[in-house]
Computed example of a mutant assay.
Amino acid sequence: MTRQTADQLDRIDLNILRILQEDGRLSNVELSRRVNLSPTPCLERVRRLERDGYIQGYAARLDPERLGRSLMAFIEVRLDRTSPDVFKIFADAIAPMDEIQECHMVAGGFDYLIKVRVADMAAYRAFLGDKLSSIPGVAQTHTYMVMEEVKSTAAIPVPVR
């Protein structure tokens, strides 16, 4: 099966993606009005975009301060060796950690870049010492504390046709 790309979508599909990315709670009736379709064909397109994997899900953006997760940090993680078994051990160990919002394997001077959100410095220290540093294979970490969040978005640029 070949993976579909945005090149295979028409203007209406792209508009649906753009609009739903801005407001995933929009009713089908309102969405169909905005893309100039009747509700039934609009809903069929949305379901196809979901089925084909263009739309991976819907979520609410929450306020981290109100939920006691106001401290954000980025952590560089270097492993003691780069082998498939160490990568798997690391990935399996971090998967259940609620503090980690994102984890990316990267090329360069370290192996992973992790974004974490915790309550405060004490919670960060506990996370680093009790969880992250105790994973077998973790050789070194470098932390960058976020002082101000200038831009935060999950939006993907959608081509305009």
Results as ranks from 00 to 15, higher is better:
5 T>V: 03
5 T>E: 11
5 T>C: 01
6 A>L: 15
6 A>I: 10
7 D>I: 02
8 Q>D: 14
8 Q>T: 08
8 Q>I: 00
8 Q>P: 08
8 Q>R: 04
8 Q>N: 05
12 I>L: 08
14 L>F: 10
15 N>Y: 13
15 N>A: 11
16 I>V: 10
17 L>F: 06
20 L>N: 13
20 L>R: 03
21 Q>T: 05
22 E>A: 14
25 R>E: 15
27 S>R: 00
27 S>E: 13
28 N>L: 13
29 V>N: 09
29 V>R: 11
30 E>W: 01
32 S>C: 07
32 S>V: 03
32 S>L: 01
36 N>W: 10
37 L>W: 02
38 S>P: 03
41 P>R: 14
42 C>A: 11
43 L>S: 05
43 L>V: 09
44 E>Y: 12
46 V>F: 06
47 R>H: 09
47 R>F: 09
51 R>K: 12
51 R>G: 00
52 D>E: 15
53 G>D: 07
55 I>N: 08
56 Q>T: 08
57 G>S: 03
59 A>S: 09
59 A>G: 11
60 A>Y: 14
65 E>S: 15
65 E>L: 15
66 R>T: 14
66 R>F: 11
66 R>P: 00
69 R>A: 10
69 R>S: 04
71 L>G: 03
72 M>H: 09
73 A>V: 13
76 E>N: 14
77 V>G: 00
79 L>Q: 12
79 L>E: 09
80 D>L: 11
81 R>C: 12
82 T>F: 07
82 T>H: 07
82 T>Y: 05
84 P>Q: 01
87 F>W: 15
87 F>G: 13
89 I>D: 12
90 F>Q: 11
90 F>N: 01
91 A>E: 14
94 I>H: 05
95 A>F: 04
95 A>P: 14
98 D>A: 03
100 I>E: 13
101 Q>R: 09
101 Q>Y: 07
102 E>P: 01
105 M>L: 12
106 V>N: 06
107 A>Q: 09
111 D>Y: 04
112 Y>G: 03
112 Y>S: 04
113 L>V: 12
115 K>L: 11
116 V>C: 05
120 D>E: 01
121 M>A: 01
122 A>Q: 10
122 A>N: 14
124 Y>M: 14
127 F>N: 00
129 G>Q: 10
129 G>L: 12
130 D>I: 08
131 K>Y: 15
131 K>W: 02
134 S>Y: 10
135 I>T: 01
135 I>K: 08
135 I>E: 04
136 P>H: 10
137 G>F: 12
137 G>A: 06
138 V>G: 00
138 V>R: 03
139 A>P: 06
139 A>K: 10
140 Q>Y: 02
142 H>T: 15
143 T>R: 06
145 M>G: 09
145 M>K: 13
146 V>K: 07
148 E>N: 05
150 V>P: 02
150 V>E: 15
150 V>H: 09
150 V>R: 15
151 K>I: 02
151 K>D: 04
152 S>V: 07
153 T>Q: 07
153 T>I: 00
154 A>D: 11
154 A>R: 02
158 V>F: 03
158 V>L: 00
158 V>D: 04
160 V>F: 06
160 V>A: 02
161 R>I: 15
161 R>H: 10
